[in-house]
Simulated scan of single mutants.
Amino acid sequence: MSLTLFALTGAALVGLGVYGLLARPHMLRRIIAFNLIGSGLFLFFGAAAARGTGLDPIPQALIITGIVVALSASALAVGLVVALARSSGTAYLPDEEGRL
Protein backbone atom coordinates (compact mmCIF):
# COMPACT_ATOMS: atom_id res chain seq x y z
CA MET A 1 0.00 0.00 0.00
CA SER A 2 2.71 2.50 0.92
CA LEU A 3 4.69 1.85 -2.29
CA THR A 4 1.57 2.63 -4.31
CA LEU A 5 1.13 5.81 -2.31
CA PHE A 6 4.74 6.80 -3.04
CA ALA A 7 4.28 6.08 -6.74
CA LEU A 8 1.04 8.10 -6.89
CA THR A 9 2.65 10.96 -4.99
CA GLY A 10 5.56 10.93 -7.45
CA ALA A 11 3.13 11.01 -10.37
CA ALA A 12 1.26 13.92 -8.76
CA LEU A 13 4.51 15.84 -8.30
CA VAL A 14 5.37 15.30 -11.96
CA GLY A 15 1.91 16.55 -12.97
CA LEU A 16 2.22 19.66 -10.81
CA GLY A 17 5.68 20.32 -12.19
CA VAL A 18 4.52 20.04 -15.80
CA TYR A 19 1.65 22.42 -15.06
CA GLY A 20 4.02 24.90 -13.42
CA LEU A 21 6.48 24.60 -16.29
CA LEU A 22 3.83 25.37 -18.88
CA ALA A 23 1.72 27.90 -16.98
CA ARG A 24 4.30 30.17 -15.35
CA PRO A 25 6.35 32.66 -17.41
CA HIS A 26 8.76 33.64 -14.60
CA MET A 27 12.07 31.83 -15.00
CA LEU A 28 12.68 31.04 -11.31
CA ARG A 29 9.24 29.46 -11.04
CA ARG A 30 10.03 27.37 -14.11
CA ILE A 31 13.24 26.17 -12.47
CA ILE A 32 11.29 25.20 -9.35
CA ALA A 33 8.71 23.40 -11.50
CA PHE A 34 11.47 21.52 -13.32
CA ASN A 35 12.95 20.49 -9.96
CA LEU A 36 9.49 19.33 -8.89
CA ILE A 37 9.33 17.10 -11.96
CA GLY A 38 12.73 15.64 -11.08
CA SER A 39 11.74 15.03 -7.48
CA GLY A 40 8.56 13.28 -8.59
CA LEU A 41 10.55 11.05 -10.92
CA PHE A 42 13.03 10.18 -8.20
CA LEU A 43 10.18 9.26 -5.86
CA PHE A 44 8.44 7.21 -8.54
CA PHE A 45 11.63 5.36 -9.50
CA GLY A 46 12.39 4.70 -5.84
CA ALA A 47 8.94 3.23 -5.33
CA ALA A 48 9.27 1.14 -8.50
CA ALA A 49 12.69 -0.16 -7.43
CA ALA A 50 11.39 -1.10 -3.97
CA ARG A 51 8.81 -3.45 -5.50
CA GLY A 52 11.53 -5.99 -6.33
CA THR A 53 12.18 -9.01 -4.15
CA GLY A 54 15.81 -8.36 -3.25
CA LEU A 55 17.74 -5.30 -2.23
CA ASP A 56 19.25 -3.78 -5.35
CA PRO A 57 21.61 -0.84 -4.72
CA ILE A 58 21.70 0.23 -8.40
CA PRO A 59 18.40 2.21 -8.42
CA GLN A 60 19.35 3.89 -5.15
CA ALA A 61 22.74 4.88 -6.55
CA LEU A 62 21.11 6.25 -9.69
CA ILE A 63 18.64 8.29 -7.66
CA ILE A 64 21.39 9.75 -5.46
CA THR A 65 23.46 10.59 -8.55
CA GLY A 66 20.41 12.20 -10.14
CA ILE A 67 19.84 14.35 -7.07
CA VAL A 68 23.43 15.61 -7.19
CA VAL A 69 23.19 16.38 -10.90
CA ALA A 70 19.82 18.11 -10.43
CA LEU A 71 21.25 20.27 -7.65
CA SER A 72 24.20 21.40 -9.74
CA ALA A 73 22.01 22.01 -12.81
CA SER A 74 19.61 24.06 -10.68
CA ALA A 75 22.48 26.17 -9.37
CA LEU A 76 23.64 26.81 -12.94
CA ALA A 77 20.11 27.68 -14.05
CA VAL A 78 19.62 30.12 -11.16
CA GLY A 79 22.94 31.74 -12.03
CA LEU A 80 21.80 32.16 -15.63
CA VAL A 81 18.50 33.68 -14.51
CA VAL A 82 20.34 36.13 -12.26
CA ALA A 83 22.57 37.10 -15.20
CA LEU A 84 19.48 37.54 -17.39
CA ALA A 85 17.82 39.70 -14.76
CA ARG A 86 20.91 41.87 -14.40
CA SER A 87 21.32 42.38 -18.13
CA SER A 88 17.68 42.86 -19.13
CA GLY A 89 16.14 44.07 -15.87
CA THR A 90 13.57 41.26 -15.76
CA ALA A 91 13.50 37.51 -15.21
CA TYR A 92 10.93 36.90 -17.95
CA LEU A 93 11.71 35.70 -21.45
CA PRO A 94 10.15 37.63 -24.34
CA ASP A 95 7.28 35.94 -26.17
CA GLU A 96 7.05 35.38 -29.92
CA GLU A 97 6.27 39.03 -30.69
CA GLY A 98 9.20 40.27 -28.60
CA ARG A 99 7.05 41.52 -25.69
CA LEU A 100 8.05 40.79 -22.11
Rank of each mutant, 00 (worst) to 15 (best):
L55C: 10
L84Y: 05
A77D: 01
A75M: 08
L43T: 10
P25I: 04
P57W: 14
Y92N: 07
V78Q: 08
A48T: 04
R30H: 05
V18M: 09
L93P: 02
A33D: 02
V69M: 13
I58P: 00
G66W: 11
A7C: 05
A70L: 15
L28C: 11
Y19K: 06
M27T: 11
G15Y: 09
I37C: 02
A70W: 14
V14P: 07
F44I: 04
E97D: 10
V68L: 15
G46V: 11
S87F: 06
L76W: 15
L41H: 13
L5H: 11
L22G: 07
A77P: 00
T4L: 14
G54E: 04
A50M: 14
V69T: 09
F6M: 10
A77N: 01
L84S: 07
I64Y: 12
L5D: 13
A85V: 00
A12K: 01
T90Q: 08
A23M: 10
A33L: 08
G17H: 01
G79Y: 12
V78M: 13
S39L: 15
P94Q: 06
L8Q: 12
S74V: 03
Y19E: 04
F42K: 10
A49R: 14
N35V: 07
G89Q: 10
E96P: 00
A50Y: 10
I37W: 00
L93D: 05
I37A: 01
L100V: 06
S39C: 15
T4H: 13
V18K: 00
D56G: 04
D95C: 01
I63A: 15
L76A: 15
P94E: 10
P25W: 04
I64H: 09
G54P: 00
M1Y: 08
T53K: 11
Y92F: 15
R29C: 02
V18W: 05
T9C: 11
L28I: 13
S72Q: 11
A50H: 10
P57I: 13
L80N: 12
D56Q: 13
L41N: 11
V78H: 06
L28K: 15
A73L: 14
Q60E: 09
A12W: 06
Q60M: 11
A91V: 01
T9P: 01
I67C: 15
L62Q: 10
Y92C: 05
A91E: 07
A91F: 00
G52E: 13
L55M: 12
P57G: 09
I31G: 06
A7Q: 07
G40N: 06
A23S: 12
G17R: 04
N35R: 11
S74Y: 03
A73N: 07
S2W: 13
V81K: 09
V82W: 07
V69G: 05
G38M: 08
A70Y: 14
S88T: 15
L76K: 13
L41D: 06
A47R: 10
G79Q: 03
F42R: 08
A11W: 04
R29N: 07
A83I: 01
A7H: 09
A23D: 05
G17T: 02
V14E: 12
L16M: 12
L21C: 05
G38F: 07
G79D: 04
